[in-house]
Design a protein around this nucleic acid. Sequence first.
RNA 1: GUGGGUGUAGCUCAAUUGGCAGAGCACUUGACUGUGGCUCAAGAUGUUGGGGGUUCAAGUCCCCUCACCCACCCCA
Length: 425
Amino acid sequence: MRYERVKGTRDVLPREALARRELEKLVHDKFSRAGFFPILPPTFEKYELYQHSTGEASDIVIKEMYRFADMGGRDLALRPEGTPSVMRAILENHLKIPIRLWYSMTMFRQDKPQKGRYREHTQIGAEIVGEAEPEADVELIKLGYDLFTEMGIEGMYLELNTIGCRECRPGYTEKLTRFLTEHQKELCEDCKLRTQRNPLRVFDCKVASCQEVLKSAPSQREHLCQGCKEHFDAVKKGLGRFSIPFGENERMVRGLDYYSRTVIEFKSTLLGAQDTLCGGGRYDYLAEELGGPPTPATGFAFGIERALLTSRGEDIFEFSGASIPLLVLPLGDKAQAYALELIFKLRQAGISVQAEFRSGGLSRKLKRADARNAERVLIIGEDEIAKARFILRDMHTGEQKEMTFEELLSLHELKGHSLLTNGED
RNA sequence: GUGGGUGUAGCUCAAUUGGCAGAGCACUUGACUGUGGCUCAAGAUGUUGGGGGUUCAAGUCCCCUCACCCACCCCA
């Protein structure tokens, strides 16, 4: 029986796996400098956690969760996003606030796979917890902006909106609900439901007739309280000051329930339908929702798969596991044993080395060395063992040199060689 | 959940109105048993995604099904 991948999952092959390591290294360096520490919460949580944070009005909780019961009858779910776990971990472990955390972890959502969308995918996220000021939003956005720029994300643009706070949102939602109720018959089925569950989400609707209705809908901008207005202005001003281009999108409301005030999305024109590369925003009430003290917070997360899909990978994330800096070619039984001992010694000395043990004469072994993309080979036969001098052959130039083990060790082109050169998967 | 597309060798793809399932690349072996890449020669490879039907005959036509891709919805 041969098995295949489960729908919506993928095998990250060596080439891409190496790219991800590079990306994580870049993120780690960058985020560390801004005071972020890594955190690794578990892969599954109580279902209830997501119900109370991601929200019962969100599509994720309504229809996309991998929900299961364990043997003890606990109601659990694979994490569909990182923020709830991070906040839960902060509260549960009494981490000192303020704190900045980042993570790179897999997420699980049971929606229909598509280009750039998988049932298991990896998100890198950053959360600033305990800072209510607009500067925190600006800092975070700038961090993302710089990161994506450095990664060479093409066709990138930033969209910004504010969705108000506890003070001003209820008044607005009430007004909006009244408006939507009046126009109920002109709305699509989904929007009729949204009117009840989360009226703001109606703005997300792509149906033309709904958008038509929304044209005359009350504007949230006019209903923002003083605090929200000032906060939003400060964020925009901050972005302007650091030359981060953005577009205001009054329609963008985000799919998760816990957001307040600032919401952001980085998009790429290269992604087609799944154009959101990175989403996030402020979530000042989440801590309280989860039974903690009032704790303002802001954060974002981006999908690695999509990021890699849109980055000029060639320049920055070029690598391969194919090239072998040094390949030992033993000739004969005695040499085979000798070679094994030799490669262990060479590796101990910091040299990347492999040996071609598969049977064959020199001609065959050289052919194999070629097929394996070896940079250099070390030929070891009876004569060489007797003399304790080996033949080092450069596979590109064909140049050969005899040398002793000590001379080999001192060749510094063999040191510090990594897999990150070029080649195929 | 709704639409559209694609399934043929390890990979990329051919196959005329239904008429012997093929090519290139890759692979194996040899020419060449201590000197690779080039060349030449030979070789292996398939339930044509699966099941059923029509037919003397199905990769090709019909029905069902599965997988993948793309789009809607939504999201990273």
